[in-house]
Design a protein around this nucleic acid. Sequence first.
DNA 1: GTCTATAGGCTGATAGAC
DNA 2: GTCTATCAGCCTATAGAC
Lengths: 226, 226
Amino acid sequence: MASAPPPASSRDLLLDAAERLFAEQGFARTTIKQIGRAAGVNSALLYYYFADKRELYREVLHRFVARLVARTMDASAGDDPEAGIRAFVAAQADTIALHPHAPRLFVRELVDADPGAAVDQVRLLAVTSFRRLCALIEEGQRAGLFRPDASAPFAAISTIAQLAYFSIARPAVALLLGKQRDGVSAATARDFARHAADFALAALAARPAPRARRSAGRARAHRSAR
Amino acid sequence: MASAPPPASSRDLLLDAAERLFAEQGFARTTIKQIGRAAGVNSALLYYYFADKRELYREVLHRFVARLVARTMDASAGDDPEAGIRAFVAAQADTIALHPHAPRLFVRELVDADPGAAVDQVRLLAVTSFRRLCALIEEGQRAGLFRPDASAPFAAISTIAQLAYFSIARPAVALLLGKQRDGVSAATARDFARHAADFALAALAARPAPRARRSAGRARAHRSAR
DNA sequence: GTCTATAGGCTGATAGAC
DNA sequence: GTCTATCAGCCTATAGAC
């Protein structure tokens, strides 16, 4: 934990309020006046610090991605493949826990036909965190720890997708898990983060005995949903 | 494949146009006039068939979920656990391929603090497709095919999260995979669907030799990203 | 069933005082 | 740096002719 941040400038207050509101309601539905009200400052002040509503949005997005990259890169450096992947997923979970609204904010941008502001942030992720995760998987494959027949980028997507989806669709996940409250508890989120790392590592693990685990079942049932 | 649908009524044209536009731009940014224009009918006609913009949205959502439930339930019925899970994922992939915009539409609703229209649809999914997937996993655990230490609901979420995330974040995935065009090819999507089923089944598979696969690495690196 | 025309409300952004 | 006041533009939804 970094030391408690100083007074908190109006600029930061605006960024914090915007992060929450944009994530909860989306860009279009969130109004300038709402942000000003939530930040406790006048809404016109927004135009003193940011060129327009869009730039405020970009700034919020960038703050989150920068922290995600820093934490995942930091946590997964210099470890062996298995420990590195565990640390990577843990860092992903921790960053999300600190910015619970950010994944939703991010995904809102990603689903756009024109992912405008997000495209630069995704590019950054692609050459840092995502590349690191792929490298860890490939290293494990070379070392004989992981099965060699899996595509490293695909496996990396499957790995990050778990926590990403969990936090994005959190209200829905609560319903799927049969929770009553409209939120998943922090403890459940932690449990799922551990599960996600286990799940990915189990999926990657080299089979100790690659014998006839299934003899005739490989080709069938593959396209049964036509 | 059902036989080619007849002429396509104005109502259906509106629904189709709305599905695409809502998914691409979101609810708020999509205007009544855009939908009318895209559907090739007058925008005021929308109020003849639907009470308001919101009801049109609910209708689009319901159409997709109903088809997803039908296909996944149909495909995964009566199979053994492994074949059932493969069929389930294949049905998920096929439904998405037929409604490429729908997952984005759906997730837009899910990320809202108040998932309004989606909550009923998620409830429906929870007691049908999701429950089926959990049952398949538990059945495999009882039969000794799958590791007994995994949580079935968590594993089910991890399973569906892969394709869900892939199709939701499609523009970002294209960047992560280093594709030039701003879309992932249909072939790549098919490859990923196969990978997703393999990944999930490998993660679930019972270890033939549960010996010392890792001796001292369990506890460490778990919280390294503080 | 499909259209034209328009009312009425809300929003992003600016001007300018302090 | 922070505020008040305000406007021009766009959007949903309705009325009503055909």
